[in-house]
Design a protein around this nucleic acid. Structure first.
Lengths: 215, 215
DNA sequence: GACTCTATCTCGGTA
DNA sequence: TACCGAGGTAGAGTC
């Protein structure tokens, strides 16, 4: 912790007047300058890889992209250093990727007799989460979100527009699947002829483990 | 700094096995758990406002949204506290707003004989960055981004749809300007009849200062 | 307070 | 490595 002023020149220019701040240097060399507030984001930082020149009362941190962070120290208030070792890392559960895996295994949850053709089916404007075929042999594009908002409907509409240009697939209809869908998104989906399905993550996971137990 | 394990339950679930980490509590009450690497983002955190229950070897931090962060301490390795006071704040220069100012002054960079009608032209779904008229007297809406991605194209398409409802302006076409534009965004822009222009910030700024020197 | 949009976004995945 | 999309996005500005 120190009284310091900071300048950053790189993707933009930024200046911090002198004040008391916490400066954190991690094992990978990244540097962060924190104020005593404003959530977890530092005021200024320089990610690894970088090179730190220590001129005593001034640090100059540069990186290969030509960005530069300059910290001028006026007074050091506290200086603590510690060896921490590798971190085993964060285990996440319940993000969009998870939902996609579960639905790819159980497309029938979205609609009776829906069959998976492909996960992450690529178009030239991005990947469709699930491409399926329905009971009548028609093609169905599924967009999966954790939270279903208007952007997601737009995204699916774009894919449908694109897929319907492909004579081998057309006509393709859409299903918008999410743990919750906003009323606005439902209205837009309806206007675009897209069906909405709200799925329960815990139920899906439960069904999944039952399947695993059964076979 | 402490050996600790952490659990977060909220928008998703996340678990951190026991390891040595730095825990930062700021004056506003926000809590961040940092590993010794991985840029500035903490492994886990809880923003203000929140409520911290200190049970000695366990902290439980909850917020009004019903999210919960639990830190179990196995061993405290270092404990430093300091009063830091208000921070005067960061001064920035060179973000999208800047690019908009530069292009408003030099719309000719985007297309020959393009003339500015208005910056931040308001529609009922949001402001169009630049509204211009072209050599033929037609109206052109310009959307400016630092990085041109598919969302920006959609944004411009929405504005165009809106502007074309106005008989005094229609027909209006679009130009999507950014320092770099992704291939997907280009494909979509093309499909929507929107032209793409990649602009160089430094060149613009250079041209600007030359103009200032000349006149 | 809700909505919109930017960001030195960060981070993970993949071609 | 570069590019692309998700995020517990966060944060700022506006209505």
């Amino acid at each position: 912790m120190a009284n310091c002023s900071v300048d950053y020149e790189g993707r933009l220019n930024a200046h911090l007047p002198p004040a008391t701040r916490l400066i954190m240097v991690k094992a990978d060399g990244c540097v962060a300058v924190h104020a005593d507030g404003g959530a977890y984001k530092p005021l200024n930082w320089m990610n690894a890889p970088n090179y730190l020149e220590d001129h005593g009362d001034e640090w100059v941190v540069t990186n290969p992209k030509g960005e530069r962070l300059t910290i001028r120290f006026e007074e050091i208030l506290s200086d603590v250093s510690m060896e921490m070792g590798e971190d085993p890392g964060l285990q996440k559960d319940g993000v969009e990727a998870h939902l996609q895996v579960l639905l790819a295994d159980q497309p029938g949850v979205l609609e009776d007799d829906l069959q998976l053709i492909r996960r992450e089916y690529f178009t030239d404007i991005g990947p469709v989460d699930l491409l399926c075929s329905d009971a009548a042999g028609g093609t169905v594009a599924v967009e999966i979100k954790r939270r279903g908002e208007i952007d997601g409907v737009e995204q699916l509409a774009r894919y449908l527009e694109r897929l319907n240009l492909d004579a081998r697939l057309a006509p393709v209809r859409g299903i918008f699947a999410a743990q919750s869908i906003t009323p606005q998104a439902k209205v837009l989906a309806d206007a675009r002829g897209i069906s909405c399905v709200e799925v329960d993550y815990d139920e899906l996971r439960g069904a999944e483990s039952n399947t695993l137990k059964l076979f």
